[in-house]
Design a binder for these strands. Structure first.
Ligand SMILES: [Zn+2]
Ligand SMILES: [Zn+2]
Ligand SMILES: [Zn+2]
Ligand SMILES: [Zn+2]
Lengths: 173, 173
DNA sequence: GGCTTGTTGAGACTCTTTCCCAACAAGCAA
DNA sequence: TTGCTTGTTGGGAAAGAGTCTCAACAAGCC
């Protein structure tokens, strides 16, 4: 009997981690012979101050507003550090409509996304059944699975309401 | 009892279509008040002459080699026509590593992909179970599902062999 | 404090895709 | 067929995302 038959829950369950993100990153930097610099600290603190999906541009923008002066982090450094954070396993990177979007990986539960094509909102869910299915396909094809990207496209509840309202208005005319 | 429990087959089953791709495209063009032009014909014939995953650049290259002279199709026209073919439902577009990849949609069975991160090869599979799962998640979250993108990352059989061979060599040293 | 070496920021550059526009050619009607 | 109207094409410029170059800078270490 599969989990989904029983009504698998798609809610996310939180994950406990031992170290704060910056300390975890410092471990990674040390292991790689890299340095713990001011820009890297600023960026990590900012990124992990809230759970969100964001892109490089938004981050550059936010950091610019936060510290306009000499403490600002440059565009190349933002891109470089984002890559390092992905490499270090602190961030997860995904492509949505040809644009790179990042989110927490370290300390945040595994999940996939529902993408509203009307408003661009991303919502999350987790499914063990999906993992099982993925691994079964890999096994059958002799493919060694290391991960996946799964994005469900459609219309979120809010946008559905909006659309219905629109439609009602039109019907009245 | 779920399909996957019984050992769902992930093979693709072919699809019969009434019209050749170009005629199907002509219907679309007509419906949109667009014209059936030489470049559009050349491009569609070429694209549907073989089943393959391809990107805009490869297509531009191939078309350039095929007709070097005045019959060549320009870069903007390739991009424009690819968009029209997606719009018309003849091609499907996906993003892999931040780059747009196209493949047949019209007359080709629905499927998802295994992506080998070593060699870049794409292999295909189909799973009804995945569709059911996707729709179940949507239902639970009040999300109207219109489609999805599912890419399984990993290492293909061939690259696994190569890696093992490498490893053996190293072990001998 | 001084030295070594990784890092940063400014700006140039790459790559993919789109835009602009004058020349061109489908489609249609005479 | 010819001529007209209007959508289409191709060259080149431009936009958007991300990377590279390199001189000035600052961690880390003595
Ligand atoms: Zn929405
Ligand atoms: Zn997420
Ligand atoms: Zn491979
Ligand atoms: Zn495919």
């Amino acid at each position: 009997m599969s989990h989904s038959q029983l009504g698998e829950s798609y809610a996310l369950t939180s994950v406990d981690v031992a170290l704060p993100p910056m300390e975890r990153f410092e471990e990674y930097l040390q292991a790689k012979g890299k340095r713990i610099t001011q820009p890297r600290r600023i960026l990590v603190e900012h990124v992990f101050s809230k759970h969100e999906h964001f892109d490089a541009d938004a981050l550059i923008e936010e950091l610019a507003q936060r510290d306009a002066g000499p403490k600002r982090v440059s565009r190349p450094t933002v891109y470089r550090t984002l890559n390092e954070l992905v490499e270090a396993g602190l961030l997860r990177k995904m492509d949505i409509g040809g644009r790179a979007v990042y989110e927490h990986d370290y300390g945040y539960p595994d999940h996939d996304h529902l993408y509203c094509t009307q408003c661009g909102k991303l919502s999350e869910f987790h499914s063990e059944e999906l993992i099982r299915l993925r691994d079964a396909v890999g096994r059958e094809q002799g493919f060694r699975v290391t991960g996946h990207k799964f994005i469900v496209n459609g219309t979120c509840q809010e946008c559905q309401r909006k659309t219905r309202r629109q439609k009602r208005k039109v019907d009245l005319i």
